[in-house]
Computed example of a mutant assay.
Amino acid sequence: MKWNLITYLALGIIVTLALAAYSSAPEERSEIQTSENMQKRQEIQMESYPAAEGEALSQGARTNKKSSGPLEGQPLSVTEASTSIIKALQEKDMETVASWASEDGVRFSPFANIDPVNDLVFSPDEISNLLSDPTRYVWRTTPDLDDDKIKMTYADYHLKYVYNKDFIHDGEDAVNVLLGQDAHPGNLHEIYPEANHDFVEFHIKGTDAEGRDWHTLRLVFEKIGQDHILVGIVHDQGIP
């Protein structure tokens, strides 16, 4: 009996020690799963994410970036040039018009049939001051009828033969295209050859029964490489 009791006690001690050893092992293994270590791992992983994410964002920005206009230093298209000028004419901002003008000057023609000899040509400096110029210029005349002169200051000419209608809001425009069923180029292409000139036409349709009271303004540009410089402002209108 004594032997059996001792045996049972020994077995009990062994079992107790085994259980204690087994239960301590998981605690040691689970130590790496504590919140502190988890946080460390996350910090290590996150250290590499911002750079990759930033790189991806920058690549995306470069890929998706859209230009809001022509790049600095690049020439404007004829459409962009004409838009700037027609707005300036509407606002009577002759300094802006002058900034587009050819150094050889801009010819002002009150009708589609251009008179290359007698139609007035103004330099950029002269254009800047035209609205305040009190001189009454002869803009067009009929040789055999002295009374048939268009003689007025530029301020009056501007209101009658340049921006005489609201071409921006009431009209339509096109590049190198004649608008309106009664539109005609006159001698436009003889004076300004198509090979090295573009024109932008602003046109307002007629409002009478037959549509004959139409109005047109043509901005004529000389092409120099990719640049466009203003060389002519040609007015035309129908006869009701």
Rank of each mutant, 00 (worst) to 15 (best):
S58M: 10
D236R: 00
T79F: 05
I233C: 02
S132P: 03
T96I: 06
T207R: 07
N4K: 07
D208G: 01
V231E: 01
G73P: 04
K65A: 12
D170N: 15
H184L: 07
K149L: 12
R212Y: 01
T135Q: 12
N4V: 09
Q45M: 10
V138D: 12
H235K: 08
R41E: 12
K165H: 14
P240E: 13
Q74R: 06
Q39P: 01
A183T: 03
S68D: 05
R212I: 01
D115M: 07
I127T: 04
A81N: 06
M1I: 04
E172Y: 10
S35D: 12
L120T: 05
G186F: 04
Q237T: 06
N176A: 08
V234W: 00
D104Y: 10
T34I: 05
H189G: 08
T96C: 03
M94T: 04
S109Y: 03
D146K: 15
I44G: 06
K92W: 01
K66V: 08
P26N: 11
L5K: 11
G225L: 07
I44N: 10
M152N: 11
G186C: 08
T83G: 09
Y157K: 03
G60Y: 07
S67H: 06
D125M: 11
E28D: 12
P116F: 04
T83D: 13
I224W: 05
